[in-house]
Amino acid sequence: MKFYIKSISFSLLTLLLMACGNAENKAKKEDKPLKPTYQVTNVKSDTLKYKLSLPGELKPYEEVTLYAKIEGFVEKLNVDRGDLVKKGEILLNIEAPEIQQKLLAARAKQREIAEKLSFSAQNYQRMNRASEVEGAISSIELEQTKTRFMVTVLL
């Protein structure tokens, strides 16, 4: 019985050593670098046999929202959608009849103020010359005329 136990233990030890030896041999074989293999085929040109239509949406890299500085109507459009534009380039011209009317009104107001200034200056000069004569004009009237002239100048 002891003999069987010794022979079984010896057999197991032998199997164990053999298994370790096979692992070392496999590791040595795997360490060798293998040359890569490639499959090669000939390329040929061909036409498409079917057409594929898919829905899609094109979006630009950059988007800009434009706002007009003044209200008006587009007179001339210099660019179209998708055109390349540079900084400072004029995209469109706006016609603004309201602005033209405001300009004409401002010029009329300017002429009116210039006329009032001229009249006030002439009136003050006449009153000042008349005040040189004793008793022709009272000092209060001269002061009122001077005040009206100064107010007109400040407008």
Rank of each mutant, 00 (worst) to 15 (best):
V133S: 09
K87P: 00
P97E: 10
L103N: 10
E115D: 03
N93L: 05
E134S: 08
L77E: 04
L92F: 15
N128D: 13
L77H: 03
S131V: 03
A68F: 10
N93F: 10
I99E: 09
I137Q: 03
N93M: 12
V79F: 14
E95F: 14
A130Y: 08
L117W: 08
L84R: 04
R81P: 07
Q101Y: 08
D80S: 13
K69E: 12
K86W: 00
E75W: 08
R129W: 04
E75L: 06
E112R: 04
M127D: 08
K69F: 12
A106T: 13
A106M: 09
G72C: 04
A96P: 00
L92E: 04
E89N: 05
K109P: 00
K76T: 07
D83G: 00
E132C: 02
N128W: 09
E89G: 05
A121M: 05
E134A: 09
E115Q: 11
I70K: 11
L104W: 09
I70D: 04
R129T: 06
G135H: 14
E89I: 09
Q125P: 00
E134R: 11
Q122L: 12
I137F: 05
K86M: 01
E95G: 09
I113L: 11
S118V: 09
V85M: 05
A121T: 12
E132I: 07
Q100F: 07
F73M: 03
I99F: 15
N123G: 01
F73E: 11
A114S: 06
A68R: 06
G82D: 01
L84Q: 03
L84N: 05
K69I: 15
A96E: 10
A130D: 08
D80A: 14
A108Y: 05
A96G: 08
G88W: 00
L117N: 14
A136K: 10
G72S: 04
E71T: 15
K86V: 02
S118P: 00
E132L: 12
K109T: 14
N128Q: 14
A68S: 09
I137R: 09
R126T: 06
A105C: 02
R129S: 06
E98S: 13
L92R: 05
L91W: 04
F73C: 04
R81Y: 02
S118E: 13
A106Y: 11
E115W: 04
I99D: 06
L77N: 04
Q100T: 14
A105T: 12
N93H: 10
D83R: 00
A96W: 02
E98Q: 11
G72Q: 03
G82I: 05
D80Y: 02
R126Q: 06
E132H: 04
K102W: 15
F73L: 05
S138P: 07
S120I: 02
Q100C: 05
E98H: 07
Q110G: 02
I70F: 15
A106S: 12
K69N: 15
Y67Q: 14
Q125G: 01
L104G: 01
L92H: 04
R81N: 13
S118M: 10
E115P: 00
K116P: 00
G88L: 00
A108Q: 07
R129A: 08
